[in-house]
Amino acid sequence: MDASNLPAALAETREDFLALAVRDRLQLLLDFSNELPGLPEQYRDHPDLFEKVEECQSPVFIFVEVTDGIVHVYATAPAEAPTTRGFASILVQGLDGLTVDEVLTVPADYAQSLGLAEAVSPLRVRGMTGMLGRIKRQVGERAAA
């Protein structure tokens, strides 16, 4: 993966993971799970706006809004699914506030570049890839509307 075009937050996250031994990467992912931002009040009672990420084994829901060309990403994931919640947190924190073009140029294989294949199941990594794909699709749709 060409990391040169990664947005700063995602590049930094990737570097943080790759700087750690494999066993410590899982702990960093769990740390991220505790940092998933809560939903803004206007979306808490509107589950109908959120899209279920079917690639995830756990119930993960995402919603994207684009305002004046700036992307805002929201996600929910249960506390009892910390790895999935960690992946959602990485994407929310790494993509929120970027421009449409910055989000759309994030490589589809970003999840595979974190060095987590040895720490979590391939299904979990595929779930994060699914989250990113759905976020990018929603961004493209909202930007075109």
Rank of each mutant, 00 (worst) to 15 (best):
F17L: 06
T84S: 15
R44N: 10
V64I: 06
I62E: 00
G94I: 00
A79V: 14
A19Y: 01
E65M: 02
R85C: 07
H72N: 09
D45V: 08
R126P: 10
P40S: 05
E51A: 09
E41T: 12
G38W: 04
V73C: 01
R14Q: 13
L95C: 04
S121V: 13
Q93M: 07
E80R: 12
A88W: 05
D96T: 14
Y74L: 12
F32C: 06
I90L: 11
T76H: 09
G115P: 04
E35R: 15
Q112M: 14
P47K: 07
V60C: 09
F61W: 13
L39Q: 03
P59R: 12
V103I: 01
V73E: 00
F61D: 09
Y110K: 07
V53F: 11
D96H: 08
V53M: 10
V71E: 00
F87E: 04
R44F: 10
E41Q: 13
P122C: 12
S33H: 08
L30E: 08
V125A: 10
R23G: 10
T84V: 11
M128P: 06
G130R: 11
G69S: 01
V125N: 10
V22T: 15
E118F: 12
L98Q: 01
L20A: 04
L36C: 07
I70R: 03
L39Y: 05
S89T: 04
H46E: 15
T83K: 09
F61S: 11
R126D: 15
E35S: 14
V73I: 05
P47S: 06
I62A: 05
D45P: 02
I70E: 02
V103W: 01
G127R: 06
D101F: 02
Y74A: 02
A75G: 08
E80L: 08
Y43C: 00
E118W: 11
